[in-house]
Nucleic acid binder design. Structure first.
Lengths: 114, 114
DNA sequence: CGGGATCCTTTTTGATACTG
DNA sequence: CAGTATCAAAAAGGATCCCG
């Protein structure tokens, strides 16, 4: 439990895994899908996910370089957790819609994903 | 997804919810179950969980004071996520036992919960 | 008993510029 | 294209002491 939590700790990791859950993506493709992340942070989280064996990094030594990221078998086993989180988020929003709207107006811009 | 992640962000929240999933507990009972947390941090995380409506706080104005914490209905809906995380942790450990042991020896003391 | 208040350290995240 | 490097800010976590 704590272990899974730690593996997912990091503001962007769950989104990265979510994107990679059904596709192999290049570095820039992931970057485009996350408009508010810096290159540095994306790289860092990708490295961390790779170190934890949740994703694989494939480097094609071409010019220009091409790097693809692919979810691993063990990484795929995290997807059901993300799906549950997604469903939970939806029902949570439904329950507290008004309160969440109030917070949102007070604090900042909306999220892409719940 | 991101929302559920944010609600669970905080080093102790998932453990607190785990403990409260099947019992109402007093402040000190939670504290005893988490040997390495300070009172300040426990209080802080409890307040945060309460603000997010995942737990309820019942104060009995006796002397000495008595405060109980109880999971809410919406809080209970997070438990399946924690159970999945727990199972994931177990299979992850099984897959990478050797590597995890190596890290453990290098870094520090073991966890109570995976 | 169940906290709150202060002060401090560690960790995480971000902005910006540069490169093979 | 896919990153590094440097610097700075913010967030999270912790130690310690005090209180009704």
């Amino acid at each position: 439990m704590v272990l899974a939590y730690k593996l997912l700790s990091g503001k962007r990791k769950i989104m990265i895994l979510w994107f990679l859950s059904n596709k192999v993506l290049r570095y820039n493709e992931i970057l485009k899908r996350m408009p508010d992340v810096t290159q540095k942070m994306l790289t860092k989280q990708l490295r961390s996910l790779e170190d934890d064996h949740l994703i694989m990094r494939h480097v094609y030594p071409t010019v220009p370089p091409k790097v693809e990221y692919e979810i691993t078998d063990i990484g795929k086993r995290i997807i059901p957790i993300l799906e549950l989180m997604h469903h939970f988020g939806a029902s949570y929003i439904e329950t507290f819609r008004d309160e969440l709207n109030a917070r949102r107006n007070a604090e900042g811009p909306p999220e892409i994903c719940n």
